[in-house]
Every structure is written in C-alpha cells, then in structure tokens.
C-alpha cells in the first residue's frame, strides 16, 4: 500500500515537470514579447477586414495592382512611412521587389494609432517577415511627419 502510494506520487511529479518547464519558459518572455503577441493577434483580424482583399491572404499581392507584403527589405526601408501609407493612403509609383506599382491605395483614416501599430506588427512579423515589435507611440511620431 505504502509502495503504491509512493509510485503515484512519483508519477505526479514526473507529469508535472513538463508543465513547470513550460511555465518557466513563458515567464521568461519579456513584456515586449508579450505586447508583440497581443498586437499581432489584433493586427491579424484588422488585416483580414482592411487589407486582405488587395494584398491577399498570404501577403502575395494582386498582379501589378497591389504589391506583395512579402519583401522584407521593402518593408524595413519604409517602416517609418507605413503608418502614413495606412492612415492617408498612397498614390504614385512605388517599387517593391524590383517591380513597379502605380495604383491608388485607399486611406484608412478611421484607424487609431494603436490599430495601425497592430497592423504594422502583424504584417512585419508574418508572410516570412520577422521584424519585431512596433509600439504605438512610434506610430504617433511617424504620423506627425507624414508628407
């Protein structure tokens, strides 16, 4: 009887170990990483409702009508401009991944700075991009210098 009890105890400890390890792992995540995860998941639903029609479910773009969002260099180079593009729309020529696009992108003035930040975090950390967090005060700053 005593023996059986011991085995059970050992088994419980054995099962609990992975759970403890997982908890340790997650507690190691920094506040920034957790913020980023939250931004990204909100950004995803915003992307589906505002961007996906033209830019595609996999960020592949649409022919020469809408540029892809998979070219991480283009996104990185224009990171400070993305807020303005989303808030005010975009007109004129733009080169992405060596291809030229010249269609009008609609403006989304209804989006808040936070929502724009969430979109930027989603796009720049999906479709093969991995550019990290972009907190909303940065969007506020970016929007002040829109042309």
């Amino acid at each position: 009887m005593q023996n059986k009890h011991q085995t059970l105890k050992r088994r419980i400890i054995f099962l609990a170990l992975p759970v403890i390890f997982l908890m340790m792992f997650f507690s190691c995540q920094s506040q920034e990483e957790r913020d980023m995860m939250n931004y990204r998941s909100n950004g995803q639903s915003l992307y589906v409702s505002k961007c996906q029609n033209c830019h595609g479910a996999n960020g592949e773009g649409l022919g020469q009508l809408a540029p892809p969002l998979t070219d991480t260099t283009s996104l990185r180079l224009r990171k400070q401009l993305l807020s303005c593009f989303i808030k005010n729309g975009l007109e004129g020529e733009i080169t992405v991944n060596g291809k030229t696009y010249n269609e009008k992108m609609p403006a989304f003035p209804e989006l808040t700075d936070m929502e724009i930040a969430q979109l930027i975090v989603y796009v720049t950390n999906t479709f093969g991009n991995k550019q990290g967090h972009y907190p909303y005060p940065q969007v506020t700053r970016d929007l002040e210098s829109c042309r």
């Binding site: 029609n53 022919g63 009008k104």
Partner: peptide, 14 residues
C-alpha cells in the same frame, strides 16, 4: 477603382 470586394472577386475569378 473599387477597393472593397472587386479585388478579391477578380483574384478568385483569375
């Protein structure tokens, strides 16, 4: 110049 349903319609039609 439609930015709502046309792009996705034509993406699918294509």
């Amino acid at each position: 110049s439609c930015s709502s349903i046309c792009p996705v319609m034509h993406r699918n039609m294509k």
